[in-house]
Write a protein that binds this DNA or RNA. Sequence first.
DNA 1: CTGAAAGCGCTAACAA
DNA 2: TTGTTAGCGCTTTCAG
Lengths: 337, 337
Amino acid sequence: MKNNITIKDVAKQAGVSISTVSRVINDSKPVTDEVKQKVLDVIKETGYIPNPLARSLVTKKSQLIGVIVPEVSDSFVNEILNGIEEVAKMYDYDILLANTYSDKEQELKSINLLRAKQVEGIVMISWIVEQEHINYMQNCGIPATYISKTARDYDIYTVSTSNKKATFDMTKYLIDKGHEKIAFIMTSKDDTILEMERLAGYEEALEQNNIKLDKNLIKYGGTEYENGYQSMKELLDEGIIPHAAFVTGDEAAIGAINAICDAGYRVPEDISVAGFNDVKIAKMYKPKLTTVHQPLYDMGAVAIRMVIKLINKEILDNKKVELPYKIIDRESVIERK
Amino acid sequence: MKNNITIKDVAKQAGVSISTVSRVINDSKPVTDEVKQKVLDVIKETGYIPNPLARSLVTKKSQLIGVIVPEVSDSFVNEILNGIEEVAKMYDYDILLANTYSDKEQELKSINLLRAKQVEGIVMISWIVEQEHINYMQNCGIPATYISKTARDYDIYTVSTSNKKATFDMTKYLIDKGHEKIAFIMTSKDDTILEMERLAGYEEALEQNNIKLDKNLIKYGGTEYENGYQSMKELLDEGIIPHAAFVTGDEAAIGAINAICDAGYRVPEDISVAGFNDVKIAKMYKPKLTTVHQPLYDMGAVAIRMVIKLINKEILDNKKVELPYKIIDRESVIERK
DNA sequence: CTGAAAGCGCTAACAA
DNA sequence: TTGTTAGCGCTTTCAG
C-alpha cells in the first residue's frame, strides 16, 4: 500500500546495484540500454518514487521555495501567488507558504521556519520592508526577492512598479478630468517610504497644475475595504466633499465608494473615485473601478524567476525590476463639469 | 554565513556526544541540567538549526501537509486557505501548495508530487471529487480530507455544508419574498453530484410551494464572474426576465447582477439576486449581496485539524463534518410587490 | 560501464 | 545519565 519501495528494492529486483539505479533515475552517468530498460521496468512495476528527502540531504537541494505573504486572502496577494505558483511548477519547485498577518515578529519567525525547512529561496510579499529583515535575510545567505509596494533603495532584489510615477499619473489624470479637490487616501500607515513616494507623486501633480495642497484631504488607512470606508467616512463627516478621491488600493477604494454612497452621494456623478492595483474585483464592481493596473500575476512570476536564477547562481543584470503599470479607464471616474 | 552548523559541530563544541545534543533539542531523554545548559548555550551561540530533512528521513515525519486547490486566487479558496494556514502553524506543520486549475490530470499529478515530497497528509479543495482520485489517494494510504461542495457518499473524510438544504432554504427564502419565477444559475457544469443536490433543493422548494418547474430558468456556468454574467445574459437575451436569480456562487452572482444592470434592469428593484458562499466581496458589493454564508475559514480549519488527527492516528467520530450555513439577508433581494 | 563504500544530518536502540 | 553505533534513502567518489 504505502510507498515503502526504496532504491534498494529496485536494485535487488533488477539485479543491479543501487548506484546503477541512481544513475538511471538521474541520467547522471552512462548505463547500458539493456540494463537501463530493466531498471525502468522494475521502477514502473513497483511504482517506485525516489525519496526527495534523502536526495536533498545529500545534494543539499530541496526544490522548495518559501513564500511569505501578509495574508493569503488579500486579493493583491493571491493574484501574485498565482503567478508564483505557476512558474514554480514550471521549474519543478514547490511552494512553502507562510502567512504573517503583517506582523513583524511573525515575519522573522517565518523566515526562520522556511530556512529550517531548507528552502532554497524566498519570495517575500510585504507591505513594509524593514532593514532588520533584510539584514537577517542576507545574513543567512538565502536568495530572496521582495515584492513590495516600496521600492526603496535597499540593496535587495525587488519587483515592483514605480509608485511615485503611477501616483503622479493618476493624480494628473484626475486633474485633467477637471477635478481639483482630490482626496488622497492611502492604504498604509503614515511615514513609510511607500507613502512618501506616493505622496510625492500626488503633490507633484498638484503643484504642476497649480493646485494648492490641502492636508485635510489626505488620509491614512489600511488595505482593506473597511479602512477605505472609514477614511472616506471621516472625510465626509468632517464636512469635506472632494471632487474626486484617489485611494491607493482597490478594496479600500470600493470601501470609499460605499461610504460615499451611504452618505447620500453618487459615484461617479458627485464624486469620482480611483483605485490602485487593478485587482479582480475592480472590474466586477459597479461602477467599474478606474484604477492603476499593476501586473500582479507577472510580478509574482518575475519574482520567483529571479530567485530561481539566484539559486542557480545566474547573474541578474538588475536587482530591481520595475514592471509597467497602466491607468485603466473605467467607470468610477468621470469628467467634472 | 550559511547554516552549515550540524549537530556534530554543536556536540564537539559542547564537548558532548551528538546523541546528547539530539536529546536536548528533542527533550527525548533526561539530560543533566548542567550539560543541557552547556548545549543550549552552544546552540544559541552558533545559531544552529536542526536539519529537518535529516530528521524526517529517520523519523518519517516531514511536518508537511499538502494542500491542493483549484486556484489560489479564487476567493472561495483563499478564505479557506487562511483557515488551513493558521491551524497548520498552530500544530507546527507547513503547507505545501499545489494549484490545479481544476484540471483532473493536474490534480493527479499534484497528489503524486506532494506524496513524493513526503507530506504527511493532504487537504484537497476541489469542485468536483472523482472516484478515481479517491481510489488513488486511498491507495497511497495518506491521510486526506476533502473540502468540496459535494458531500457525496464517497467513503472519505469531508468537510462541507449541506448543499441541498441550503439551496432549499434560500429558494424558499426567495419564494417567501414573493418571487415565483426564480432563475437558478449554477456554478458548475451539469451532471455532477453537487448540481444534483442543489437542483433537488431548488426543485423541492418550488414544489412545496406549488410553483411549476421551468427548465428554461436553469443555467449552468462556472464559479467566475464572467460565467455568471454570461449565464444571466443568455437568459435575458432569450427574453426571460425572472423575478429573482439564485446564483450558487458569489462572484458569479455579481456577474449576474452586472449582466442585469447592463441590460437595463435594476437589482434588486426589478430582479432580486442571491448568491452562495458569502465571500469577502459579498458585503463589499453594492447592493450588498444576500447570500448563503459558508464558514469558509472554519472549513479550512476543521479540514486540516482532521488530517492532523488522522496523522496522529486519533480516531474521528465522523468522517463527514457538515458545518452550519446561514442565510445572510442583505440588500440584493427584496420583497416583490 | 558497473559496484562497493562513504557519508549527507539526524534519531534511536543498545551498551556502558 | 551518557556515548557508540547502526541505519533512514539517496548520491557520488573511487576502484575495477
